[in-house]
Amino acid sequence: MIAGIAWIGTSFYFVALDFSLRKEPGMPPGVGGEAWEVHGGGFYHVRKYLTAPETLPKDLIWFKWEAYLTWVTGFLLLVVLYYLQADSYLIDPNVMPLTQWQAIGISVASLVLGWVLYTALCKSPVGRSTGLLAACLFAMLLAFAYGYTHLFSGRGAFIHIGALIGTIMAANVFMVIIPNQRKITAALLKGEKPDPRLGAIGKQRSLHNTYLTLPVLAMMVSNHFPMITDNAHAWVLAGLIILAGGLARHFLVRTEVGDRHADLAWTIPLICTALAFGLIITQPSKLVLFQGEVSDAEALSIVQTRCAACHAEHPTDATIKVAPKGVHLETLDQLKRYAAQIEVQAVQNKAMPLANRTGMLDEERAKLGTWIARQ
Rank of each mutant, 00 (worst) to 15 (best):
P215T: 00
L237N: 01
R357N: 05
L275Q: 06
I177Q: 09
P125C: 04
T70S: 10
Q304S: 06
I61W: 02
K350A: 07
G127D: 00
R337F: 09
T149M: 01
S222Q: 01
L121F: 07
L287Q: 10
I61N: 03
L361I: 11
E364R: 04
M140L: 15
I228N: 01
K64W: 15
L368N: 09
L243M: 13
S295C: 07
L214F: 14
L111T: 06
M169V: 04
K123G: 02
G326R: 06
I161S: 04
Q348E: 14
H45P: 01
K203E: 11
E330I: 10
V344H: 01
R365L: 13
E256C: 10
E343M: 02
A187N: 08
A297C: 10
A308H: 07
I201R: 13
P324M: 02
P93C: 06
A6E: 06
R128F: 05
L132A: 15
S129C: 13
A308Y: 07
I165M: 05
L189K: 15
M352L: 14
K48D: 06
A200R: 12
A274V: 14
K123P: 03
A103P: 01
K321M: 14
L189Y: 01
V46C: 01
V173N: 15
G199Q: 00
L111K: 11
A340F: 12
A234S: 10
A238E: 13
Y82H: 03
A274C: 15
A6F: 09
A6T: 03
I61K: 11
R205Q: 09
G292I: 03
T267Y: 09
H39F: 14
M96Y: 12
D362Q: 02
T55P: 08
A308L: 08
P125A: 06
P25R: 06
I91F: 03
T210N: 10
F138N: 08
V288K: 12
D230M: 06
K325N: 03
L287R: 14
L142S: 11
S301A: 15
T130Y: 13
A276W: 07
I320T: 15
L60R: 14
L132W: 14
R306Q: 14
A248S: 06
D263I: 08
F75P: 09
M1I: 11
G131H: 09
T358A: 02
P284G: 04
A200T: 01
R260L: 11
L252G: 12
A171S: 07
F43K: 06
Q345E: 08
Y68P: 01
V236R: 15
G4V: 08
K336E: 11
I320S: 07
V116S: 09
I5P: 05
T10I: 11
K336I: 10
A163T: 11
A309V: 08
A163S: 12
C122M: 10
K321Q: 12
S88D: 14
H328T: 03
N172F: 00
A187E: 14
I302K: 04
A135F: 09
